[in-house]
Every structure is written in C-alpha cells, then in structure tokens.
Design a protein around this nucleic acid. Sequence first.
DNA 1: TCAACAGTTTAGAATAAATATAATCTATTA
DNA 2: TAATAGATTATATTTATTCTAAACTGTTGA
Lengths: 142, 142
Amino acid sequence: MAYADQYIDKLRKSGLRPTKQRIKICEVLFDAEKTFHFTIKELVKIIENQANIKVSLATVYNTVHAFMRKGYIKEIPLNASQSYYDTNVTHHHHFFDEEENKLIDIHQDDVDEVNIKRTIPGKKIRSVEVIAKIVSDNQSQK
Amino acid sequence: MAYADQYIDKLRKSGLRPTKQRIKICEVLFDAEKTFHFTIKELVKIIENQANIKVSLATVYNTVHAFMRKGYIKEIPLNASQSYYDTNVTHHHHFFDEEENKLIDIHQDDVDEVNIKRTIPGKKIRSVEVIAKIVSDNQSQK
DNA sequence: TCAACAGTTTAGAATAAATATAATCTATTA
DNA sequence: TAATAGATTATATTTATTCTAAACTGTTGA
Ligand SMILES: [Mn+2]
Ligand SMILES: [Mn+2]
Ligand SMILES: [Zn+2]
Ligand SMILES: [Zn+2]
C-alpha cells in the first residue's frame, strides 16, 4: 500500500485520526481508478472481501458521514430506501437506470447549464442536480 | 361532500373499490385548491385532524402506492430516509429548501429544456428532473 | 334483495436502514 | 510511557416501511 501515507496525511489534515479502519476505507474509496457510486451495504461487502481487517458497521457509517462532512464524498438523492454515495465530488449529473438500480455519471460538460428563471426571496441556490431516469429502449413498436 | 361522487367515479374507473378510507384520502389530496407535497406522516396527521373517519397507517401506505401506480400522485427523490409525494403530476422541477425541509414547485416553463448530450446505448430517457437546493441568502460577506 | 366472495382494512408483528449508547481500545503528545 | 481525547465496537434503539392474517365490506348475479 504505497498510498497509505497519503491517506494518513489526508486524514490528519482533516482533523481525523488515521486509524486502521479509516485508512482501509480510504483505500477502498480512493484507490479505485475511477470514481464510483456505492451504498453502505456494498461498501461493507467490499471491505469484507479484502478482509485483512474487520470494520464494524457503525464505523463504516461514522466514517462515511465524516468523509461527507469533509467533502470527500457526496450523497445522491434517489427515491430509494437506501442512500447512494458518490466518490465523484465534482459538480455533475446522473442517469439512474431504473432496471439495474445503477447510477451513471453525466459530466457537467454534457449538460447545458440549467437556467432557472424563478427565484425565491431571501434564498439562494446552493446546487442544481439533474437526474435522468432511463429504461431499456425496446424500439419494437407493434 | 359534493366531490365524493367524483372520487367514487375516479376510483371505480381505476379498478379500485371506493371505500370510505380511499374517498377520504382523495378528499385530502385532491380537494385542495393547489397541488402540494407531503410525507406519509403529514398525510396521516391531516386525516386525523379532519377525524370523521379513522384510517390505519397500512391503508394510507397502500392507498398512496395504489394512487402512484395509477399516476394520481408521484414520488419526489430526496435524501431518502422518508419519501416525499406530490399531487402535481405534471412534468415540473423543484427547489428544496434545506433549512425548512420543504419542496417548492418550479414550473416547466421556468426552466429551459434540459439538454443532455450524452446517451446510453440501448437505453432511453423516461424523465428528467431538476432539483435545486436552496438556503438562506445572508448577503452579509465580511 | 341478499348470499357469496374477492378485495380491503386493520392491529400488530416483522424488516431493514440508520443512529445512539456505553464500554473498550488506540493514536497522540508531553 | 502515561494520560487522555477521540475512535471503534457490539449491542440496543429508532424509524420508515412492509407483511400477516383475521375481520370487514363493496360488488355482483341469482
Ligand atoms: Mn445520512
Ligand atoms: Mn415507496
Ligand atoms: Zn456521480
Ligand atoms: Zn412538485
């Protein structure tokens, strides 16, 4: 794990103690070549499979929330009974495949700036997210 | 209840038996002058307050799901420990006030058509929704 | 008109995601 | 290395939602 030192730094700079558990979670989340989307359940499974260390469910939740507060990951709103998280923290949008229950990134460049003409007095926009739900295109129309 | 007959029709036409409970829920949802957003908890509270009839929680869930299947209401995707529903079933977008946890409609006309340049092979877009998160605009920058 | 039945409601139990608790453990630093 | 603030853990709790199975009711056709 050549990256461990890097994560130790990252955690220290964030005021988080670099524990074995947090470093492991960093490796899973940030060693990946590409950013990805995950649920807590999936994250736990990945950690278990690479099982050189045991991490309790509570710690996974705590760490994910800590990383969210620090801006290392973000939550994606879906009408699910389960939260989806994203290691891509840049501003971007999503397809949601309703058949496979999978999120797919849409780069910001691939969506023209969303122009909202309406405003709410005393309020400002903090973020704008587009979710496009997709389904199989069975172009066989009888 | 001049509207009751209308709801009895609506339910019958949908293949749903017009029970006292379903008619009551129709009144709460569709007698309102304006469309609105609600959680199950809020809906239960409204029904309880107008308490000429008792409706169990299971029935509220069942009926809300039945009405969704029929397209009379729709679910709005938000950070999901709780589902938000909408009696406005036209295509439209939302502000989400993060401080008050309230949804506000944005009419379709108030958002330029969202142009997504990317496509997924074999898939087609079924819906596109924009959620703009808003917060208080304290325009006091030190 | 009414019996029969499918569909509906209900209280309460079950489930599952998420959070809280409080005892134990550990990274930090003096 | 000792003291301690912070972290982890097993476990319990909370909360939204769904399930169950018994009781009830709207509908239909004789
Ligand atoms: Mn959360
Ligand atoms: Mn649902
Ligand atoms: Zn993403
Ligand atoms: Zn709405």
